[in-house]
Design a protein around this nucleic acid. Sequence first.
DNA 1: CCATATATCGAAAATATTTTCAGTATATGA
DNA 2: TCATATACTGAAAATATTTTCGATATATGG
Lengths: 120, 120
Amino acid sequence: MAYEKKIPVDLDCPLRLTMSLIESKWKSCILDELRNGKPQRPSEIHKLLPEAAPRVLDLQLKEMVEDGLVEKTIYPELPPRSEYRITPLGLSLIPIIDQMLKWGQDHFDIFEKKYGAGKG
Amino acid sequence: MAYEKKIPVDLDCPLRLTMSLIESKWKSCILDELRNGKPQRPSEIHKLLPEAAPRVLDLQLKEMVEDGLVEKTIYPELPPRSEYRITPLGLSLIPIIDQMLKWGQDHFDIFEKKYGAGKG
DNA sequence: CCATATATCGAAAATATTTTCAGTATATGA
DNA sequence: TCATATACTGAAAATATTTTCGATATATGG
């Protein structure tokens, strides 16, 4: 079969749906950075997540806008300016992000010991 | 740079750590299927998740065993028999799975309307 | 002897994701 | 004029993931 654009979200089951919205490498981090509700410019987000290539953030933010987790405002100025802000829908995912954050904190040591520095 | 095996889990931050343990296509579903604590044979898991290729479940279960989310018992019988059972560590992720499940249920309609049958 | 069930594996093919790179555009300030 | 900052894009390269396929092994039942 020829290449076909993947379905944006996974409607097979509610669990897969939720996962598919946030499982890309940087989406959960982006949500975490925008959680305070403050609009952020792309360049600011890049600074907050310096390990992510700007292009990836662009692409992932675009999907998040499409999915309704984030909204974008473009100001017709020069040099160009735009801002991303978390939506109520995106905000409703924050408790999940929080729980994952906490789980990761609580269990970090186990995985540090197992896989960390030189244990690969 | 030559191909190099990826780091098994992401130790960059607690959030990425948690995500990296469950973000593969079928891992969250596998956890959900094993949540009741009953050991399951590979062939049973395949039946529960018929859309996943057996090979993928093999590979993902192997990683989950390595990560300590699931444990495996091999019975030295013929024909071969083995069982996978969720561990306490895996069980500790179930509240997150539950929250994602619930979120997906609560918001399914939005995404059904947006992306479902013919709206692609 | 042959098909079936069972679990597992290696290898390759197919797909998807992430990253890099070079380009668009335009105001500002050296 | 030239570098810089800003946001954005297309294309291709690099990587990763998922799927398919064919193979191993061996008891059981036809």
